[in-house]
Write a protein that binds this DNA or RNA. Structure first.
Lengths: 374, 374
DNA sequence: TTGTACGCGTTATCAC
DNA sequence: GTGATAACGCGTACAA
C-alpha cells in the first residue's frame, strides 16, 4: 500500500520508452503506435501507476474539479435540528471488536430525524449530479465563518460555488478568486460573481395569500433573524402581500432569534406566556419552523388548532414530524445544477443572476386537513 | 474574475520580499517578523492571491484531501427509486428570465419521494462530517463500473474510500493505489484495503426472528440479486436463522432481479399471478423493497395484510411511503465516519476490518401496527 | 530573519 | 512516432 507512488518515470523505465511517450499514450492514444501504447499501459497497470492530479494541474493550470464551499454556523453539529445532538466520537470506539454494537454508536449513527439532509445538503446533491454529467469531480469544503478557508477550497478547483451562510456575505463579496464563482442566496450586488437564488419575495407572498384567503388568518407574525439577506426578503414579501390585501403589516419581526445552538426564541415564548397568540407564525426557514414547533409542543400550544406555523425551504425534515410543515419549497436540486451550469459556462464573464421560482407546499401545519399537494 | 492567477512571485514583488518569505508568512507565521508578515498578507489580499493546491501538493507529495468514490449502476438517475425519473436538463432552461418558474423545472427540481438520499448519500454525509473535523476537504467522485475513473479520483487525494457498487468488487480488489483505501460493504479478503461493513448476517437473523416469533410467519422468500456480496450475506443470514428456528429454509432466492432501470421483478410477479404468495418477502435492500411495494400495490396485493415486506439499509425513503418499511438499519453515518478515521490512521498498514452492528427498525410493512421503535 | 536554488510529476514544444 | 527539455507554482534546504 504505502511506498513511493510510481510516476511517469517509473512507467517509462518499465516500458522502455521516454516519459513523453508515456504521457502521449494516456492523453493522445491515437498518436502512438499501437504496440508502444499497449506496452505503456501494461507497464502502468503492473506497477500501479496513478497519475498525480497535482502535477497535472500544475502543468495545465487547471485542476478539472469544481468546488462547493459552505460557511456554517453549526459547525460540528449540522445534523441536529435541535440542540443537544452529540456527534459520534469515532476515536472513542473500540474498532477491533468482532462487531461494534449499535448501542455503542449512540444517536449519531442513524438516520433519525436529527440526521436529515438540510438545505445545503439538498443543493449539494444537485450540484454533484450535474457535475458528474460534466465528468467533473466535486470538492466539498466547509468552514466556520473565517475567510481563509475559502481560498483553501478555491485553490483546488476551477470554479467554485459558495454558501455564504449567516454572516459571510460581505466576506464573499470582497474575496477575489480569479475563477468563476457562484453565490447562493445572497444579494446580487455589483460583485463579479454569479448569483443563484430563489424567488424569496414571491414565495412568501404566495404563502401569505394562502393563509389569508384560504384560512382567513390576518394576524401574522414573522419569526427569524433579519441578518441574512434572504430572510429579510421573505419578511418583505410577507409585508408586501399583507398590504396588497389591505391588511395591517407588522413593522418588525416578532422574534429575530438566530438559529444557533441553544437558540431560545424569547419572542415566541413571550407571545405564548402572554396568551395573546397571533393567528400564524410565519417562520423564515424550515429549520426555524421546526424548532418553533418543538417549542410550542413543549408549551402545550396545539398546531394548527391554536396557531398556524409555516416554514420556508422545503427540506425533508419538514414532512416527517408529527405535524407536517406547510412551507415554500425552493428547487434545491435545480439550484445546485444551475450553479454547475454557470461554472462550466466559460464564455460569459460572471455577474449573472438566476432566480428560480418556488412552490407552495401545503401540509398540515397551516390548518389544511387534506392537503391539495403533498 | 479571469486573467492569470496571481502566484507567490506576484505577491513577493508586490510586498518587496522573496518568495520564500511569502511562503513562510503563510506557513510559519511565527518565524517571520511581524511587519514583513503584515506586508505579505496585505499584498496577497490586494492582488487576490490564492495558493495553488496543485503546486503545493506537488511539492509536499500529498494533496491534503480525502476522496470518496462510488461506482454506480444508475448513472444519471440515482435520484429515482422508480423508473422514468428524468433529471433536469439545465441546458434547456432559459436562465435569463426574471424568474424561472417552478413548472419549467420539472420533477427533478424538488425533494419529492424520488429525491431522497440513498444509501451512498447517507454514508457520504458521515464521511464529510468526520473529514471536516479533521480539516480535510472531501473529493467526491463517481463513475460507472469501468476502472479508469477510480484512479482519476485517487490521483487527487491522500486516502480514498470506495463504494464498489454492484460489480466493481473484483476491480477494487485488484487496483493498487499506493495510499490508504477503505472499501465499503465488500468481502474482507486478503487485499491490502481496510473494510467497513455492517453486520449483514446478524441483522438479517434478527429480522427473521422477528417475523417468525412475533408474527408467526414461516414461509419467507428472499428478493434481490445475489451478485453483490452483502446481499448474499443477508440471504445466508435469513437461511441460518430459519434453520436455527427449526424451519425449512429456501435454497434459492425467489427473485434475483438486479436493481437497474426497468427492473421487472419477474419472480415476484410470478408469485402474485400464481396466487401462492409466501408469508413475507424479505428484500435484500430498501430500494428493492420499495420497488416491490410499488409493484404489489399496482397488482392489488395489500401490505401487510396479504403479505409482509421487509428491507435492509434504513434509508429515509423507507419511512415515507404509504406503508412505512420495516427494515434493518445500518449505521450509515457512523460507517462514513469510521472510514475517515481509518484513512487518517497513518500508523497502521491497511487490512483492518470494522464491522458495525445493525438495528431492527420495526414499522408497518411487517404487520406491526404500533411499532415499538420508530 | 531573509534570499537563492532545486525538486516535486506532469504537459507540451520542439527536434530528431 | 518518439525523445529531450523547459515550464507550471510552491516548499524547503542551505547560504547569506
Amino acid at each position: 500500500m504505502a511506498g513511493r507512488r510510481p510516476t511517469v518515470y517509473d512507467v517509462a523505465r518499465q516500458a522502455g520508452v521516454s516519459i513523453a511517450t508515456v504521457s502521449f499514450a494516456f492523453r493522445r492514444p491515437a498518436e502512438v503506435r499501437a504496440e508502444t501504447r499497449e506496452a505503456v499501459l501494461r507497464a502502468a497497470q503492473e506497477i500501479g501507476y496513478v497519475p498525480s492530479a497535482s502535477a497535472r494541474g500544475l502543468a495545465q493550470r487547471r485542476t478539472g474539479a469544481l468546488g462547493l464551499h459552505s460557511f456554517e454556523y453549526l459547525l460540528d453539529r449540522p445534523q441536529g435540528l435541535t440542540e443537544g445532538a452529540v456527534p459520534l466520537q469515532v476515536a472513542d470506539l473500540d474498532l477491533d471488536q468482532d462487531v461494534v454494537s449499535w448501542d455503542q454508536l449512540g444517536p449519531g449513527a442513524v438516520s433519525g430525524p436529527a440526521a436529515f439532509p438540510l438545505y445545503v445538503d439538498e443543493v449539494q446533491r444537485g450540484f454533484e449530479l450535474e457535475a458528474r454529467r460534466h465528468g467533473r469531480p466535486v470538492l466539498v469544503g466547509r468552514s466556520a465563518e473565517s475567510g481563509g478557508d475559502v481560498t483553501e477550497t478555491a485553490g483546488r478547483v476551477d470554479g467554485l460555488a459558495i454558501f455564504p451562510g449567516r454572516a459571510a456575505e460581505r466576506l464573499v463579496r470582497e474575496v477575489r478568486l480569479h475563477m468563476p464563482v457562484v453565490v447562493f442566496g445572497s444579494p446580487p450586488d455589483d460583485d463579479p460573481h454569479h448569483h443563484v437564488l430563489a424567488d424569496n419575495r414571491g414565495g412568501a407572498r404566495e404563502l401569505v395569500r394562502h393563509l389569508v384567503t384560504v384560512h382567513g388568518l390576518s394576524d401574522l407574525a414573522f419569526v427569524g433573524s433579519q441578518a441574512p439577506w434572504d430572510l429579510r426578503e421573505r419578511f418583505f414579501g410577507m409585508r408586501g402581500e399583507l398590504e396588497a390585501l389591505g391588511l395591517p403589516a407588522p413593522d418588525e419581526v416578532c422574534d429575530d432569534t438566530d438559529l444557533v445552538d441553544g437558540a431560545t426564541f424569547d419572542g415566541v415564548r413571550a407571545l405564548v406566556t402572554s396568551g395573546r397568540l397571533p393567528h400564524a407564525l410565519v417562520c423564515g426557514s424550515d429549520q426555524v419552523a421546526l424548532a418553533v414547533l418543538e417549542l410550542l409542543a413543549r408549551e402545550g400550544v396545539r398546531v394548527p388548532e391554536d396557531i398556524a406555523v409555516t416554514g420556508f425551504d422545503g427540506i425533508l425534515a419538514g414532512r416527517l414530524g408529527a405535524v407536517p410543515l406547510t412551507t415554500v419549497a425552493q428547487p434545491m436540486e435545480a439550484m445546485g445544477r444551475v450553479a454547475v451550469h454557470l461554472l462550466m459556462g466559460a464564455g460569459d464573464e460572471g455577474g449573472r443572476v438566476v432566480r428560480l421560482g418556488t412552490r407552495l407546499q401545503v401540509r398540515r401545519s397551516c390548518g389544511c386537513s387534506r392537503p391539495p399537494t403533498s
